[in-house]
């Protein structure tokens, strides 16, 4: 299939998606819309973490930290001075943050850039520490961020968090950012740079002996991954309308890791599908925590059951689906074409 055909098909798909977004924003049930928004944010997070963990093979546990930076930075920029004033009643917000208000888009970008900066700092030790040690360093970083955000009251409002964030996040925003994330990361991965990243994942020494600068490329993965995590954090903050440091704990990172494992390490399609599916699954699983009536017998809802089922699923994936549900299979227009051809043959 020619490249131009693929680009055209992709463009058409994007238009179809935006038509869907247009009608969804008008008619979709707000509850479903909210879950879909969450799912798309998970997809952004999963695809961006996959760049670091799946494609470059640098096992990072720092994603929640990047998100927190993005969420706080953007929130402090797009919130109105009045809302800020009502939030920071204990210790006032430092100047000039207390007076600044900028458009949502630019707030997200700056949030992403701040996270990318953190990505650089976290990625730098990559040259010295590897494997599980790197996992520990990134975990440590994520905890340092959480601890700092709990204490820097004149910037973050401490453990009280920020409340009454304006809800800018809607499907237009989440869908657009998901598309941008997928395109950018897909293009990186398919380029010469992506080949270098995958080479580092497969064999660092061999990669280095082909002239690949390990430091530059590992940091590249961290910076790009962290940028999109930061943006996702910003989107999530505005969707949930409230953020506090402890919601960005290691548990959040675990959830994203679960998504990329289920979707298949180094599989973008898997990350997106499982990311969206995960949001719906978690919502749907809420029913297990509600009282149920089966054959006239009332079974009381059990608190925490949802997370227990989730963790059992996680363990089953780790133990039995090491390749994830999608394995190495990626979405491609060639694949779609083949599917149609097969059908025709059957007919």
């Amino acid at each position: 299939m020619k490249r131009s055909t693929r680009v055209l098909l992709s463009l058409m798909l994007i238009i179809v998606i935006y038509i869907f977004v247009y009608f969804s924003e008008l008619h979709m049930d707000p509850f479903i819309k909210r879950i879909l928004n969450t799912g798309l944010i998970y997809a952004i997070l999963a695809v961006s973490l996959n760049l670091i963990n799946g494609f470059t093979g640098q096992f990072s546990l720092g994603h929640a930290g990047f998100m927190a930076i993005g969420a706080y930075t953007s929130a402090l920029l797009y919130m109105s001075p009045e809302t800020k004033m009502s939030n920071f009643f204990m210790i006032p917000l430092i100047s000039p943050l207390d007076r600044i208000q900028i458009p949502f888009f630019w707030a997200l970008i700056i949030g992403g850039l701040m996270a990318a900066g953190a990505g650089f700092i976290v990625g730098a030790p990559c040259l010295r520490v590897r494997g599980d040690y790197l996992a520990i360093v990134t975990y440590g970083f994520s905890e340092i961020i959480r601890s700092l955000f709990n204490n820097l009251q004149n910037i973050t409002n401490g453990p009280l968090g920020l409340k009454g964030l304006p809800t800018y996040t809607n499907l237009w925003w989440t869908v657009s950012w998901t598309i941008v994330t997928i395109i950018v990361i897909k293009r990186i991965v398919d380029s010469s740079y992506g080949r270098a990243l995958k080479a580092i994942r497969d064999d660092e020494v061999a990669a280095e002996n082909l002239g690949i600068n390990l430091f530059k490329h590992k940091v590249l993965a961290f910076v790009v991954g962290a940028f999109f995590a930061g943006v996702a954090g910003g989107l999530l903050g505005s969707l949930l309308m409230t953020i506090d440091p402890n919601s960005f704990s290691i548990l959040f990172t675990y959830q994203i890791i679960m998504i990329i494992l289920l979707g298949g390490l180094g599989n973008i399609t898997g990350s997106v599908v499982v990311g969206i599916g995960f949001a719906f699954l978690m919502e749907w699983l809420r029913f297990v925590e509600m009282p149920m009536h089966i054959f006239g017998i009332e079974i009381p809802g059990i608190l925490g059951m949802r997370m227990l089922i989730f963790s059992v699923l996680l363990m089953l994936t780790i133990l039995f689906f090491r390749q994830g549900i999608f394995g190495q299979r990626e979405f491609s227009w060639e694949g779609v074409a083949k599917l149609f051809q097969k059908r025709k043959v059957k007919e």
Binding site: L251, I302, L303, G304, M307, L308, S311
Partner: peptide, 9 residues
């Protein structure tokens, strides 16, 4: 994760 959630339930 599993042990924590098991304990909660």
């Amino acid at each position: 994760f599993l042990l924590q959630n098991f304990a909660v339930v």
